[in-house]
Write a protein that binds this DNA or RNA. Structure first.
Lengths: 362, 362
DNA sequence: CTGAAAGCGCTTACAG
DNA sequence: CTGAAAGCGCTTACAG
């Protein structure tokens, strides 16, 4: 029943026959290699007409097998529930498209999912990989798997973390600068008890030491926060470091431990916008007002931050710029560029809105 | 420089040589076709050891070219900025994975982008396509392009719209029931002037007639709304139909025309959650409170609706269920199932929260 | 229980 | 200006 009009797809041989030329000539013409008069104009149009008439589209698998180019780039993100990563993916796709490449976006929610996705790339499904999962800072499984790919010559670029390997260029946002500006802003507003909420195993105090040493982007927030506090003359209280689960739900769950700190912090700097939205909602449910009772600052700066009530003061990360540079770096790698750019840092900036209390509250 | 350890990838021939058998046997063993004792156990382990030692992964392109199966399914959505579509994509990926399939998620923001994405499928990049873009109700370019694919035997499933073609099964949410429940709920709360905000070219009144006849999912909202009003004894005022652009920004932009209606509507039923969030923000900026001054009901029911302030009363669409059924239908098509299920309707349900005013306001 | 051979649909030297 | 031939790395009848 499904057969219907399932006329077989035309192949290059069909086009060649129809146009009365060889497959070679068809291939040359259809790939635009006939510019310099390598094929007579008349022959060219004959081939193009035949191809069109037969509805010919080259088989992607055959092209890949023969040319060893997939024209596909894999992009791994942690979660499409985070609008910042969606922006990154959309921008990456647009940038790659300009050079004829597709971007396969994979959301690798867990490290196992990421490892599985990286493994699949051994099958030659993509000409390169960009990882933006935030898991490439340690000696974890994801890093090992990426390295295995790189050793086989697959171009790789890391996007959020620092480079885990000399052969892998990295582009990251200036998290240090943005975090410092955020905390500094809260200090300037008079806050003296400022909490830092980051993704991680719940509990606080004990984890400070680990985070201090970790080369991750979450740890960057922590170090900048500590620095801003100390420069602001505030003694850090380890109970101010709250760790909890991912996203909106995770943000809400961090409210209880936050409110358990006595005396209560008057401000919270949250590692992501979705988590900050969760925090604001959790505070609301606990009967506290933002920013009057507790000021909140997020991280990310995507569209949604301007639409919450109160609107979110946040550290804006230029996702499109990171994507553009990342894609550019991939192509440089692909073309065997010798002079690889060292790790690149893109600027972040603090967007002041209502949730920090600098403007009139909601 | 990029060459580094670029030792050539092992092929099936390498494994065969290493294990001292033919490529045939390697293929049979590695594809799990040797279960019934078709290959001696000892030979099997020898092959597996060799494959592992060489780090062998079959070339995807070669497998596809030879077997004519890509093990990939394309999923087209309108925008990853809509969390409902992200949920759909994530669920589809999970469901497909259970049967060894990958899902290529493409966000086709415009109809041109959708047409381009569908065109690419002629190259045999996927074994089927699921379209969830909301553009398959008319005689538009997207529908034509999809039909061309189906005529070549590519299994296709439509997810949000009605089926555009007898050979294409469709799964959609009960938008009619959900919309009716939403408007009915507002009527029960005493509202008599209820606006309907939907995506579309701005302007109102004139577009009522078009929308009434359109077989789209947006028109389903309109028809159910009209029915609920009339059953509730309310005479529809064409000025209550407000159309505007997409997403958060679009929602905010619809506030001005909404407030321009005199007497002002006391409630608004909005076509999506992101748009509803934009509306709430826009009303806030206009100095109006939700739900006290204007009640708002959204559509979608993803996680974020529970985290806004006020939390959003919304029509919940079971994205995961739709994805599961959609994937199941794709596999039925693939296996040439003759008894194709007619269009399926999945239940929606109204989730009552704060933005409609039924509960204590924020 | 195992292997030799054909062929999927292209591109790419190479020859003329 | 154009074509014959090889081969990318697999799977799949088919033969033994």
């Amino acid at each position: 029943m499904r057969q219907r009009g399932a006329r077989e797809r035309a192949t290059i041989a069909d086009v060649a026959r129809e146009a009365g030329v060889s497959k070679t000539t068809v291939s040359i013409v259809l790939n635009g290699l006939a510019a310099n008069g390598r094929v007579r104009a008349e022959t060219r149009t004959r081939i193009q007409t035949a191809a069109e008439q037969l509805g010919y589209t080259p088989s992607h698998a055959a092209q890949v097998l023969r040319s060893r180019r997939t024209m596909v780039l894999a992009l791994l993100v942690q979660s499409l529930a985070n609008p910042l990563l969606v922006d990154l993916a959309v921008a990456a796709r647009a940038a790659a498209e300009r050079r004829g490449y597709e971007v396969d976006v994979v959301d690798a929610r867990t490290e196992e999912a990421e490892v599985a996705a990286l493994r699949k790339l051994h099958a030659g499904r993509a000409d390169g990989v960009i990882v933006a999962t935030g898991r490439h800072f340690a000696r974890g499984a994801a890093v090992r798997e990426l390295r295995a790919l790189v050793e086989r010559g697959l171009p790789a670029v890391v996007l959020i973390d620092r480079s885990p390997d000399p052969a892998v260029p990295a582009i990251r946002a200036d998290i240090d600068g943005g975090s410092y500006a955020a905390v500094r802003h809260l200090l300037d507003l008079g806050h003296r008890r400022i909490a830092l909420l980051v993704l991680g195993a719940p509990g606080h105090g004990a984890s400070s030491a680990d985070l201090e040493a970790e080369p991750s982007s979450l740890a960057d927030r922590f170090r900048a926060y500590r620095r801003a506090l100390s420069e602001g003359g505030v003694t850090y209280d380890p109970r101010w470091l709250i760790r909890g689960p991912f996203g909106l739900v995770g943000g809400r769950e961090m409210v209880a431990p936050l409110l358990a700190v006595d005396p209560r912090p008057t401000a919270a700097f949250v590692y992501s916008d979705p988590a900050a939205i969760g925090v604001i909602r959790g505070l609301d449910e606990a009967g506290l007002r933002v920013p009057e009772d507790i000021a909140v600052v997020g991280f990310g700066g995507t569209e949604v931050a301007a639409f919450t009530r109160p609107s979110l003061t946040t550290v804006a990360v230029p996702a499109a710029e990171m994507a553009d540079i990342g894609i550019g770096t991939f192509f440089a790698l692909l073309e065997g560029e010798v002079e690889l750019p060292a790790d690149r840092l893109v600027e972040t900036r603090l967007i002041v809105r209502e949730s920090c209390g600098a403007q009139r509250g909601c």
